[in-house]
């Protein structure tokens, strides 16, 4: 399944790029983050993150579909 991941803030720094499309067997954002965190040594635990699928907030257990865009949202700090 082809998934596009866009990175922001600390995750962008740790991944070293803005966006990538990968072929992944991950069925949910939770599985995808576990896979990526291991590959790229991300330091933030998933409990500190929120997740968005196709530009809106989603659950960690939302089933992913081919072509989805996923964003893992680090702790926000606006204002």
């Amino acid at each position: 399944m082809q998934l596009t991941i866009t990175y922001f803030a600390l995750l962008r720094d740790q991944r070293g790029l803005d966006t990538e499309t990968i072929d992944s067997p991950a069925a949910t954002p939770a599985e995808l983050y576990t896979q990526l965190a291991e590959q790229h040594s991300f330091t933030l635990p998933s409990s500190a993150l929120k997740v968005a699928v196709n530009d809106d907030f989603a659950h960690w257990t939302t089933p992913l579909k081919d072509g989805d865009t996923i964003v893992f949202i680090p702790p926000v700090a606006g204002g």
Binding site: L10, P45, P74, P75
Partner: peptide, 29 residues
Amino acid sequence: IEEIKSRVPIWKKEYYSTGVTDWVNCHQE
């Protein structure tokens, strides 16, 4: 303002006088 600070996906990178930078609230665990 309270909801913006807690919900809107905006991040803040601080540039310290020491030359170090840090993403606020993203302290590594």
